[in-house]
């Protein structure tokens, strides 16, 4: 069913079940966010995609990523209050990831060039992780390896692997590093091995018939199983077919 709503006064159409963030972005309205990715379900952790929604005469601030659109709502994606709250959120995030180019650039857009909060100072050092959870969600929802999880709660919360050890179900596919908004996972290939630095996972790379190393054996096995491919499918690399 097609729904009608307005965003910043402009009438737009949306399908039932779509998220407000997706609808707004599709129609060219910019809304910042750091914990959202099209490949996984909305989570609502970073709080940057805050917008104002008026429904039945009542206004409220809400995150747009996990807000399912409704017909007749009026949405405002930028206002003085929204900018103020986003700036404060970015100041909190900047203190956790002061080296991240993405975070720095976004913060600058909101006039935040330095954080008034001391560097991290969380219970355990987070090394640039802003706990958006994207890595774990991609690993569970897309890859199906379930190698990562949040542990503890509150300000002791951390992202990592069970027992903070090399995760046995990790296939070193690198999806976590790819989606990480602050690039804090770290990932490289050297000497026939692929390493995912943050999780201390390293796996030897499989070679094709022509001797090209392109992915860890474990990953290929996992993918073959998921996609029900022939056992020798990866004897050829994508470029060799």
């Amino acid at each position: 069913m097609t729904l009608n709503l307005t965003i910043n006064g402009v009438r737009v159409e949306a399908e039932e079940g779509e998220s407000l963030l997706d609808v707004a972005r599709r129609n060219g309205f910019e809304i910042p966010s750091l914990c959202h990715h099209e490949a996984v379900a909305a989570y609502g952790a970073c709080r940057l995609c805050l917008v104002e929604v008026t429904k039945g005469g009542r206004k409220k601030l809400t995150t747009s990523c996990n807000y399912e659109v409704l017909g007749g709502i009026e949405v405002v994606t930028e206002s003085a209050a929204i900018r103020r709250h986003r700036a404060m959120v970015l100041e909190l995030i900047l203190a956790e990831a002061p080296e991240s180019a993405t975070v720095k650039a976004l913060a600058a857009e909101y006039g935040v060039t330095r954080s008034r909060f001391a560097a991290s100072g969380a219970g355990e050092d987070r090394d640039g992780c802003i706990l958006c959870g994207l890595c774990a969600r991609v690993c569970a929802e897309v890859v199906g390896a379930n190698a990562l999880t949040f542990r503890k709660r509150g300000d002791n919360r951390q992202m990592g692997t069970p027992f903070v050890e090399e995760p046995q179900t990790c296939i070193a596919c690198g999806a976590c590093a790819w989606v990480c908004p602050t690039s804090c996972v770290g990932f490289d290939e050297q000497n026939g091995e692929r390493k995912v630095h943050r999780w201390k996972r390293s796996l030897p790379l499989a070679k094709t018939e022509k001797g090209h190393a392109f992915a860890p054996q474990f990953q290929l096995f996992h993918f073959r199983k998921l996609a029900k491919l022939e056992a020798d499918f990866y004897k050829k690399a994508p470029g060799e077919r």
Partner: peptide
């Protein structure tokens, strides 16, 4: 005990990550 958590994960067919998350939350 760790071995108990691993066993629960196996028996309930739940990722160890989920069992570990519960145990630390």
């Amino acid at each position: 005990p760790r071995e108990a958590l691993e066993h629960v994960s196996k028996r309930l067919e739940l990722p160890l990550a989920r069992v570990y998350a519960m145990a630390t939350f």
